[in-house]
């Protein structure tokens, strides 16, 4: 099966105007790929469906806005993929 990074990158390329080849593990979803909030909503919906999870975007955003976490922790591609893998693992463990 493709890695979480590849699956998310494919979703972003299919959902927005961002060419697949420009999406790297170090791409910041907002700052580098220029994805606006509505496209990001589409991407999150597609990720929710593809992985069978509920990406806690609001909690992440709140943490970033309150200075409790750097934005990179959630919105740089390699880290986003890691967070998604954690959510999938937590769900599989019954969390």
């Amino acid at each position: 099966m493709a890695s979480a990074f590849d699956r998310i990158a494919d979703i972003i390329a299919e959902t927005s105007d961002v060419p697949r080849e420009t999406i790297t593990p170090d791409s910041h979803v907002i700052n580098d790929l220029g994805i606006d909030s509505l496209d990001f909503l589409d991407i999150v919906f597609a990720i929710d469906k593809a992985f069978g999870i509920k990406v806690p975007v609001e909690a992440w955003t709140q943490e970033v806005n309150q200075g409790k976490a750097p934005a990179e922790q959630y919105f740089v591609m390699k880290n986003l993929a890691a967070r998604i893998e954690e959510l999938v693992a937590a769900k599989a463990a019954g969390g």
């Binding site: 909503l41 999150v44 919906f45 929710d48 469906k49 509920k54 990406v55 806690p56 975007v57 609001e58 909690a59």
Partner: peptide
């Protein structure tokens, strides 16, 4: 269809 974080479809 789906309720996500901060949105619904």
């Amino acid at each position: 269809v789906h309720e996500g974080s901060g949105y619904a479809v």
